[in-house]
Design a protein around this nucleic acid. Structure first.
Length: 354
DNA sequence: AAAAAGAACAACCGCTGTTAC
DNA sequence: GGTAACAGCGGTTGTTCTTTT
């Protein structure tokens, strides 16, 4: 009954990297006869390998239609889109990228794309903004240690600092700290607003933080960044991309991957439950690529772009703030930030969210 | 120039659904 | 209908290459 023993059970089968000679044998055999049964192939081809190893070698490396080399930006975009819908279904994703293997895509994801999304503040598993505690609490430090230091070094490295430059550095430093805090708050608010299960928490937090102050966050940030763009490098601050509450999918509007040719979203862009589990449908069709929720931009963040597209509802209410200088823009924030300096401040918020 | 660290890639392992018997 | 191997898939590991210190 059943089949004969699997080749894997045979002894003395070679493992490890393939030699050019082995590759040639495999290619020659398959070219002449097709692979047929992988189980019987090694013996017929004169290889001391198991059929499984031959199949993997062929499908992942030797197949003539395999496209080698760097992934294009378009391929990157497609992979991320598909992953947001299909998850780690590498073979299905590979099915939409001719010439790419599931193994190659998987490696590309694990070694590059995943880290890229993490750097952008996006959870690569959920394709939503990261909500882990460390990310939020370390944000300020990360930004300060990288971008701002680069900024300062770039702007003053060639000369001995003058008193004015020192003052500018201090001001930039302080402003940067504000910025990081604002973004942390934005992220928190976004998380709260994007989940109905914690909507009550959002209200509780608003009891801690002056709601009117929170409403001004976006415009404050907008204005601040507008003021500070005298430093070109400050635009590099935006590796962390804040998203609009309830508007995850709208972030695609500033997505450089979303080419004009693709036409952007045509529907279903709420970023919720696009996954289908049906066996006969991978939940994705080529014509539906543009219907999938797009990801946030990897491009440098600019508050202007972000908030002009996502927070128009607040514009009129805060036009006065928008036009105010930095010194007054942050006046309302000073109280908040002073309060926040106490150790229990963030604990209170995070406990409410847990 | 050497060592260490990180990134990239290839291959293996083990699980699961399918299929031959 | 039951059993066991097959084929495919995703996760993980090991090796090699590149970059940084």
């Amino acid at each position: 009954m059943g089949r004969s023993p699997c080749c894997d059970e045979k002894a003395d089968l070679k493992k490890g990297p393939w030699t050019p000679e082995e590759d040639k044998k495999l290619v020659d055999y398959i070219t002449a006869h097709g692979h047929g049964s992988w189980r019987s192939l090694p013996k017929l081809a004169g290889l001391n390998r198991c059929g499984k190893s031959c199949r993997l070698r062929w499908t992942n490396y030797l197949r003539p239609d395999i496209k080698r080399g760097k992934f294009s930006e378009e391929e990157e975009r497609i992979i991320i889109h598909l992953h947001s819908v299909l998850g780690n279904k590498w073979s299905r994703i590979a099915g939409h990228l001719p010439g790419r293997t599931d193994n190659e895509i998987k490696n590309f994801w694990n070694t590059y794309l995943r880290k890229k999304l993490l750097h952008m503040g996006i959870d690569p598993n959920t394709h939503k903004p990261r909500t882990d505690l460390n990310h939020l609490l370390n944000l300020s430090q990360l930004l300060s240690s990288s971008h701002l230091s680069n900024l300062i070094m770039n702007t003053t490295s060639t000369t001995i600092s003058t008193p004015l430059e020192n003052a500018l550095k201090l001001q930039a430093d302080a402003a940067h700290q504000y910025m990081a805090k604002i973004r942390m708050l934005q992220n928190l608010m976004q998380v709260m607003n994007s989940s109905s299960t914690i909507s009550n928490t959002a209200q509780n937090i608003e009891n801690i933080i002056n709601p009117s102050t929170l409403l001004g966050v976006q415009n404050d940030l907008h204005t601040f960044e507008g003021q500070i763009t005298g430093y070109d490098q400050i635009q590099n601050l935006g590796n962390f991309v804040p998203l609009c509450p309830n508007e995850y999918s709208k972030a695609i509007d500033m997505n450089p991957w979303a080419s004009s040719e693709s036409g952007g979203r045509t529907g279903g862009g709420d970023g919720v439950d696009h996954q289908k589990n049906s066996a006969d449908d991978d939940g994705f069709h080529d014509q539906n690529i543009d219907q999938l929720p797009r990801l946030v931009s990897s491009a440098p963040f600019t508050g202007r772009t972000s908030f002009s597209s996502n927070h128009t509802e607040n514009k009129s209410d805060h036009s006065a703030i928008v036009n105010s200088p930095i010194s007054t823009v942050f006046e309302d924030w000073e109280k908040l930030m002073d309060d926040e300096s106490t150790e229990s401040y963030w604990k209170d918020i995070l406990e409410l969210m847990s």
